[in-house]
Amino acid sequence: MNIEINRSGSVLIVRIQGELDLSTAPLFREKVEAELEQFEGVKHLLLDLEETPFIDSSGLGVILGRFKHISQRGGRLSAINVSDHVRRIFELSGLLKIMSIQSTLEDALNSLKER
């Protein structure tokens, strides 16, 4: 798995390339935490899941952990390019209560930067 990270103002855009499970979750945590520590102006987290075919509860756990971190800064969590299967995992887990799924990168950035 590879993690590609970009910033757009207060939004950290994280593109997960590969499956997010027990073996890859630590890399996601380390990379995102390093960015959050380095850039205090980053508030929001946007997950681009176009190349993420699989997420299980280990993956959900590290996403929730990062949400807890950004919510202390008043940040929010969004995702784009979510497959039907991954969407169902999000639904079942209750993660959609704290995460919005947007159809395009532009929509997601606008909605995150609104407030």
């Binding site: 509860s57 280990s58 959900l60 756990g61 590290v62 929730l64 952990g65 079942l92 887990s93």
Partner: peptide, 12 residues
């Protein structure tokens, strides 16, 4: 038993 985990394994 772990705060970084969601306790959803058995639910799934």
């Amino acid at each position: 038993t772990d705060p970084e985990r969601m306790g959803l394994g058995l639910v799934f």
